[in-house]
């Protein structure tokens, strides 16, 4: 009959209306500032820079290779290279960024900078409460604001960070082994050179010895 569907629909909404007062678990609302849903492990908002150890400036993994700057689709990253060098996590001397700015009003959270970084230095943050009343300065993050410790990275993306750490450790042992091998090779070479030199000029040391 005409109007039947309307009555059925009206009863449905009436049930919702009454039910929402009776059972609280009907309500889907999360009253945000007081109540929060934990963010998903893969949540991403804006990038941050990872540092190892205690000092953010010394431990920054970024080597200012500028790949992320070039790959960034909206061009929100600005990097200035340093003139001097500092040792990275394996002890190799690297240049470092004296300026690393991300304009988060431009950033579109695409994660491409993270994908392209060969040094695991830039990762995605889950911090989303970034509202400010200064729309230029307040949304331009410099490297101090961007620097977050590796422990923080572990706290927001535990699985991913563990993976990254394992990879870095592997790299480090490989680098150490390589360094050791290189050192041994160098030592062996030095020894061989010395032997060679000794063979080529036997009389000199002997003469010296004499």
């Amino acid at each position: 009959m005409l109007g039947e569907g309307i009555i059925k629909g009206m009863l449905e909404t009436a049930k919702n209306f009454a039910g929402s007062f009776v059972s609280a678990d009907r309500l889907t609302t999360v009253e945000y500032p007081e109540q929060r849903i934990p963010t998903a492990e893969n949540a991403r908002v804006f990038p941050f820079l990872v540092y190892d150890g205690a000092g953010w400036e010394a431990g920054l993994r970024c080597v200012a290779c500028q790949i992320c700057e070039k790959e960034c689709p909206p061009k929100c990253i600005y990097i200035e290279k340093s003139k001097d060098k500092k040792p990275d996590f394996v002890g190799k001397m690297q240049i470092y960024p004296v300026r690393f700015d991300i304009d988060i009003s431009v950033c579109m959270s695409c994660q491409i900078c993270v994908e392209v970084c060969p040094f695991e230095a830039i990762k995605m943050d889950t911090q989303f409460e970034l509202a400010t009343d200064d729309r230029f300065g307040g949304l331009l993050m410099d490297r101090q604001q961007l620097a977050k410790s590796n422990e923080y990275y572990h706290s927001i993306h535990p699985a991913e960070a563990a993976e990254v750490d394992a990879r870095l450790a592997q790299e480090k042992t490989a680098a150490e082994a390589k360094a050791k091998a290189a050192a041994e090779a160098a030592a062996a070479k030095a020894a061989a050179d010395a032997a060679k030199a000794a063979a080529a000029k036997p009389e000199t040391p002997a003469a010296g010895g004499n």
């Binding site: 909404t13 919702n16 209306f17 039910g19 929402s20 007062f21 309500l27 889907t28 609302t29 009253e31």
Partner: peptide, 13 residues
């Protein structure tokens, strides 16, 4: 508020 309740929301509070 009423519309919210019909959609199982809280409405302005």
């Amino acid at each position: 508020k009423g519309l919210g309740r019909m959609q199982n929301r809280l409405g302005p509070n």
